[in-house]
Amino acid sequence: MKAPSWFAGPIGGALVVALLAAFVVPGMAGDYGIEFATTLVLWIALVQSWVILSGYTGYVSLGHAAFVGAGAYVFILTWGAVPFWFGLVAAGFTSGLLALIVGGPCLRVRGPYFVILTLGVAEFVKYAVINIEASLGKFGRLMIGTPEPVDIYRMAVGLAAIAFVMALVARYSRFGVGLRAIRENEVAAEMTGIRVRWLKVGAFGLSALVPGVVGALMICRTGYFEPLQMFSPQLSLTIITMCVAGGSDNPWGPLIGALFLNILSELLWDSAPELYTVILGVVLVFVVLRMPEGIYGTAVKRLARRSRKAVPGETTP
């Protein structure tokens, strides 16, 4: 166990990095740089929120897009009617609420059933929104007067910092120990006094807050809401790929995964978007088969092994 004071370092670090990113980077980067940085930072927020449930408890959710889309939808519905900040918060809490509602029944099934079920629920929500919009005669909605790109970028940085701190605290707190125990052996976890259902549903709800706000910021960037795009399963799958590539037992792995894949995407997207996705697929297959603990997990293990070799005399029975 780590003492709470241990959090002070990383949280302070995250704050410093976030402040630097928010106020120094815009001065250095042009429009293109800010767009790239916004994309990166939004992905970081998404992957950090995803690990809280799926990384720590092992309940792999293929439905994260539902929360992005739901947040975006609430945000566009309230757009102009409520203050901007209120809309953002409402987007987050709506997604969180959605997760709490569907979480109870969904988290009763495990393993592959849960994975497929979350995909099904996300698709169901998507088509529900599409049908609602169609019956209202709307096929996409426009927003006028969205914030400047720099301001969206700064909000995204703040959101990513919040998401990181949430993932960090969730990982190293009593809550996180319980979540990981559920992943390791749910029956034993319950017999050791863990309120398994509460923890799982709580983690699901927590992990859905940030994506709701991400959805709101995403449509602020484009000024356009289109359900097929906001609820795309591709979004969920990319989140998983980033987390698996980096390693999903802690906040650092997904951070590395998001950085790695965003840079790769930036290098390839313009020239060959299909090639980017092909490489994404190859990376995913390679990581799962050859380094199941991800880039970060594998690196930590290698380093630990090396340092253990350096300290002789420790024998194991």
């Binding site: 166990m1 125990a181 992943r183 390791e184 052996n185 034993a188 976890a189 050791t192």
Partner: peptide, 13 residues
């Protein structure tokens, strides 16, 4: 046991 957690973490649970 919780196989992916350390001995100390198992007890800490």
């Amino acid at each position: 046991p919780f196989p992916g957690m350390t001995v100390a973490e198992n007890v800490a649970v």
